[in-house]
Write a protein that binds this DNA or RNA. Structure first.
Lengths: 190, 190, 190, 190
DNA sequence: CATGAATGAGACTTCATTCAT
DNA sequence: CATGAATGAAGTCTCATTCAT
């Protein structure tokens, strides 16, 4: 798939996100997508060979994008707790800010659309966190519990808290973020 | 007169759970459902007037069932920490044991099938936890953070941990549960 | 079909008329029919071997009933014009009074439900009128036009006028009937 | 870009008329329609969003078409009786010639498919006749009876006579038409 | 490449009829 | 004989994908 026009690809992605937010992944139809994207139905099939490929492709792109966003501004030389806090705040802010994208991701995760590669990517997104936790353990700052459990705990918490923030419609205040981080920090610290 | 068979409803529910586990909520078709339930297509419609009603009806039933399961054996006169631990363990065990049901519930929550009453029921399921946390605050055992945040934290964590347990395929060892509870307890304790 | 209970047959007929008036012949379902008739669905099939037979049976019954009603009080020894007038008035009054029955009949005629016998009956209902017109011709009172044409003219007119009377909701005033008859009389008189 | 083919609409209309003539409106199925029209099932839904819309759309089209056909060649400056005769003859010939269309219309009128607009159109089709009768009254040529009654009489007669002509299979001879007109004319003349 | 009309498999749902009670 | 739950063929409509322009 070598798109001649990379802008069209982006237009399709954007239209997809918009429609999935509005109607859910189930409610996404190629006809409406082409209408919102202002492209012919056939054009979409030039860039993506099927609806499934479109969804998987967008999913992977968003996962990578989000991973890089979250870890981008991270100062790995800072003390462990600072690192974790930055990461946590980044994650929460990112989730709320790019709500549409995460809604799409969540819909995908609960669907049967994802191919193996996409599922892999979903799982491997925690690699950096994994390593950070190892460092925390080395520095005797983190409980000696297997990382999988810690990650499930932290991520589950963070996601639900982000959803709560969105649901309540309020801005993501610093106070709120700080409180949320205290919960996470107190739970894993030694 | 052949009375409407109350067991048939259960047969339909069971077949629905099985099929949703296999193919996801999107993959659920009335034709396959009737095949698995070993009933005529029309019979399903004797018991449920539409696919949507079937899904909502089962959803509500499961939510109520699970709430009662979780809070059933709870000794409310025990000390706060014991109560919370019991609740936590109940929740985790219940989620793993009735995996199929929770998978169905999760699929529903992320779909556009649920009617308002079902959504209400989903939200109100935390009422008991809400009150328990209030007690913890009164006893100065729990951090002074609004319950919504605490609940999002605890539930998000618990759900993700349950998913992890299922994914890893292993039994839910007591050690594991205890570790998981420590995380939760340390996070919210004062 | 030897019904044990002739009253049940009548109950089914009445329920049919009521439902066809409400929902049209197309909207008639056996389930609703049994509900309105307060009988089990199977019971209806004791009295009528199919929906089609029920419709045809009721149709024939009503055609016969109406023919006898219309010609019942006719004094054949009266002068021709009086006879015709009586007949006309009978017909109009009968149609308006037993509106439900005629609505059913009209729905049947335009459907594909009627069997050959029923169609025959529908056509042969004009036999008496046929003979009366012959008498009129013999007495040199009626135009020398073939009866089929005269009958089509008279019946088409009468039916449409009856429909008009029903549509306008008003009672069928004597003035109105008289006016309508003048139209018919003037048209066929020599 | 393949433009939406305007001929396809006509093809669908024609197939509809053919099938309704053969099987009645009730017997019309979208599957058979698409087969006769030699189009994919979905194609019908490109041109009409539902079966109901197709029927209403065709109904309105035919009503308008017939009205214009009947009144097209009418010379309104001719004497009243000539006008009426022309109109009558037009109507009869039109009904017999476009038998299929009128069969469809009649099936629609007795169904529950028509929307309000279609019913309106059906009723308003007599506007021209209404005005012509007023002229006849002004010229003291027509009985002083309310138009509704006159119209019901004339239309009921004409329709039934047209049906008779069709049923008998014979051509619509001029003699026959003339006889039929005499009946109508004698009935309403002063 | 771009387009969107055309396609038809397959989804949900209805309802006349049967049959076990 | 009475019942109404059970049945499944058949109907309407959707939508991912193709293909002629």
């Amino acid at each position: 798939m070598k798109p001649k026009d990379p802008e069209k690809e982006q237009v399709i992605y954007s239209a997809t996100l918009q429609l999935v937010r509005q109607n859910g992944l189930t409610g996404l139809t190629m006809a409406e997508l082409s209408k919102v994207a202002k492209l012919g139905m056939g054009t979409i099939y030039v860039y993506f060979k099927s609806k499934e490929e479109l969804i998987n492709s967008l999913f992977k792109r968003l996962k990578r994008l989000n991973t890089s966003r979250i870890y981008a501004s991270l100062d790995e030389k800072a003390p462990f707790a600072i690192c974790l806090q930055q990461l946590y705040e980044n994650y929460l802010r990112n989730r709320v800010r790019f709500y549409e994208e995460h809604f799409f991701i969540e819909q995908c995760v609960h669907s049967h659309f994802l191919d193996q590669e996409a599922v892999q990517l979903d799982l491997s997104a925690f690699q950096n966190l994994h390593e950070l936790l190892n460092r925390g353990k080395t520095e005797l700052l983190v409980k000696n519990i297997q990382n999988e459990l810690l990650i499930a705990h932290l991520m589950g918490s963070a996601n639900e808290i982000a959803n709560l923030a969105l649901k309540s419609g309020q801005e993501l205040s610093q106070t709120w973020i700080d409180q949320a981080f205290v919960l996470c920090w107190d739970s894993i610290r030694r």
